[in-house]
């Protein structure tokens, strides 16, 4: 990643600052590459898919996950410590009566280690402003129409606490293996802007 030749003005300014910081000994180009490698390989929505699938097949794990997600994640070799600080994770479960959706109205807080880098729409002012006041309308923009009787809970993340949705297990999947179930989960399902 160190040798990019993007010629946009901002790319040039970023390169210039990077060079200056390297000169001052505040940045090591190898360290930058390591950060990017770690980010690309460790933070992936496949982690979240595994969590949901395990919760669907193992009721005891599901109970532990909903009770204290930070303590349950290591059972799958995962943690919320991949970033700069360990964050508290709350997993919120969709049911027949309640649908959950996550947001960070102030910035872009997101369970990165479980879902990978967040999509631009999650960080957009359009989503952040509207999903708290008109969640049903926003979900419809994503093609998710919920029955009027379904309550929608919107969870606003912050610097210390992150949320992830546990979607409902799709019907007719009783015979699928845990890995096959994990393949059914989607990132938007774990954010709450889609059903699985």
């Amino acid at each position: 990643m160190s040798d990019d030749h993007d010629d946009s003005p901002i790319a040039a300014r970023v390169r210039e600052l990077e060079a200056m910081l390297e000169e001052k000994g505040l940045l090591d180009p190898r360290e930058l590459d390591q950060v990017l490698e770690a980010f690309a390989h460790r933070a992936s929505p496949a982690n979240g898919f595994r969590v949901a699938a395990r919760a669907w097949v193992d009721p005891a794990f599901r109970a532990r996950l909903l009770e204290n997600a930070n303590e349950a994640l290591p059972e799958l070799g995962l943690s919320m410590g991949g970033g700069l600080q360990v964050q508290r994770l709350h997993v919120v479960e969709n049911t027949e009566d309640v649908h959950n959706v996550i947001v960070c109205t102030l910035c872009s807080c997101y369970p990165l280690s479980l879902l990978g880098p967040s999509p631009t729409w999650y960080k957009s002012t359009a989503y952040r402003s509207k999903v708290v006041s008109h969640p049903r309308e926003v979900l419809e923009q994503f093609g998710l129409t919920l029955p009027e009787t379904t309550r929608i809970d919107v969870w606003d993340a912050n610097a210390e606490s992150r949320y992830m949705v546990l979607p409902r297990r799709p019907e007719g999947t009783e015979d699928l293996s845990e890995a096959e179930l994990a393949a059914k989960v989607t990132r938007n399902g774990l954010i709450g802007t889609a059903a699985v």
């Binding site: 946009s8 930058l32 590459d33 950060v35 980010f39 631009t120 957009s124 359009a126």
Partner: peptide, 24 residues
């Protein structure tokens, strides 16, 4: 703030400089 616009198959970064800003 207008409608929410979803970009399909969005890459983690849209340009290298964004990744560099994050890493920096």
């Amino acid at each position: 703030f207008g409608p929410v616009i979803e970009e399909l198959d969005e890459p983690p970064f849209h340009a290298d400089w964004e990744a560099h800003v994050m890493a920096m």
